[in-house]
Design a protein around this nucleic acid. Structure first.
Lengths: 168, 168
DNA sequence: AGTACCATGTAAGCCGTTACATGATTCT
DNA sequence: AGAATCATGTAACGGCTTACATGGTACT
């Protein structure tokens, strides 16, 4: 269960409300993790009860802003540095790719083209993000990670283009 | 829920027992999907009840071998070609990478080195697999996918090495 | 006054993991 | 005969998604 560490990590970046955390999962973390508000609010309650975060203010519209505590920072560092990473992944795209050889040439080409369109869309978004962040004072995402995303999507695109041309 | 389509896909490759399917998840599909036997056996029952697979033989030790039906093949193709892919992923490694900037330089370097060791291990395994499959009559994994894995792990390794050298 | 969005919460049900349980076959 | 491995199944529990539910604030 990494949700608690994801929340600790986001709160270590800056104090936030549950609503803001929900948005961060969609905007910044969507490529690696997702959580809906119905999962986040109860977990914030548990983290507060465990003393890893604390309520630092209530704002307009009953919003509750939390911040990480020293105990939370210790736990977050322990998890990041000392805990053995769980490297298992769940990727429907990977599964689809694995099953692609079952399709005939026409269907296979079609799915590769669909995937290529998606990869190019991602690539354009990442390059736009890189351009924006070059100026930004406080980048939302770690710049080297944008660069990694660009490189991975680039090789993916190259591979897909090769598959499309050899399939026909 | 892609488990049913993963099972349909594996059975479209060759008729298999639940036990063999469990092993295929570990051996061939572990980088994109995982399922334990306690999930597989009940799902095979549901697929059979739905007419997408059928029992084609019972062997030693009460083993039950299933094969995909024509209806199953139709459903598999529909899912692969026509269904909108769910591209959301759950990757603890991605989450860890996202949170890495919170660490100090020494801790960050340490985690990058741990990740690099793992990437190099994967890369060696994939290159060995590529060498073995070059000779094999009936490759277990689609050769181009091994190539893709090699390329992605290569850029990952390069990126990690850059992070390690600029972090110090 | 009505609509849209901000903000938090709970409940039902499904999916997946871990643990429990049993029997068959092979090897030493 | 005992251990290891093959092979299938069920049960309990926890995580995650979807749906239900409510109220506050801003805009027109």
């Amino acid at each position: 269960m990494s949700l608690r560490h994801a929340l600790l990590g986001l709160l270590a970046r800056r104090p936030s409300s549950g609503y803001e955390l929900t948005q961060m999962f969609d905007r910044s973390l969507s490529t690696s993790w997702h959580a809906g508000h119905s999962q986040i609010y109860p977990e914030l309650g548990k983290l507060e009860a465990a003393g890893l975060i604390r309520l630092v203010g209530e704002g307009a519209r009953r919003s509750k802003t939390y911040d990480i505590t020293d105990a939370g920072r210790v736990e977050l560092r322990r998890w990041l540095v000392e805990a053995e990473p769980d490297r298992s992944q769940r990727s429907e795209s990977g599964l689809r790719l694995f099953l692609t050889p079952l399709l005939d040439a026409a269907d296979r080409k079609q799915t590769f083209e669909r995937d290529l369109a998606h990869v190019e869309h991602e690539l354009a978004a990442l390059k736009a993000l890189r351009a924006v962040q070059a100026d930004a004072a406080e980048p939302e995402v770690f710049a080297p990670q944008v660069e990694l995303g660009i490189r991975i999507n680039t090789v993916l695109g190259e591979w897909l283009r090769e598959q499309i041309s050899t399939a026909s």
